[in-house]
């Protein structure tokens, strides 16, 4: 087996969407907890600390996913043509990309809606 940190370890194939899932849980959980503890005023609309915080968090997640995608993609181009390593690393790169896009799309409502109603 390859070490976990090797970009050719097939575990990375799922990593992008695992990160997405964790982000999703944190987003939903954070929203619920924040609305319980200190709901921002409704009149602020979408411009309140909570949307801003969740938005920053989402952007950071997207950045992380894009970085990992780049890391996997570079590793893929180093691997031999038609090798399973190349396949795994490329797949991992695209899954990271999918994770990034999914993060963006799910976060879009942050731009429109106030958080706690």
């Amino acid at each position: 087996m390859r070490p976990l940190r090797s970009p050719y370890n097939p575990i990375h194939i799922a990593l992008g969407l695992v990160i997405w899932s964790l982000w999703f849980v944190a987003l939903y959980g954070g929203l619920s907890v924040a609305c319980r503890v200190a709901p921002p005023a409704l009149s602020l609309g979408m411009w309140n600390w909570l949307n801003l915080l969740l938005g920053l968090f989402s952007v950071a997640t997207v950045a992380l996913l894009l970085g990992l995608a780049r890391w996997s993609w570079r590793a893929a181009s180093r691997a031999g043509k038609r090798s399973p390593e190349r396949f795994a690393a490329r797949l991992a790169a695209t899954v990271h990309l999918v994770g990034a896009v999914a993060t963006l799309v799910v976060a879009v409502p942050l731009l429109r809606l106030p958080p706690c109603v």
Partner: peptide, 20 residues
């Protein structure tokens, strides 16, 4: 299609809410 739907759907849903 999804973006289009969300663009129409989210505001429509918002208007149905019991806002003050």
């Amino acid at each position: 299609s999804i973006l289009l739907l969300l663009a129409f759907g989210i505001p429509a849903g918002h208007r149905l809410l019991p806002l003050p």
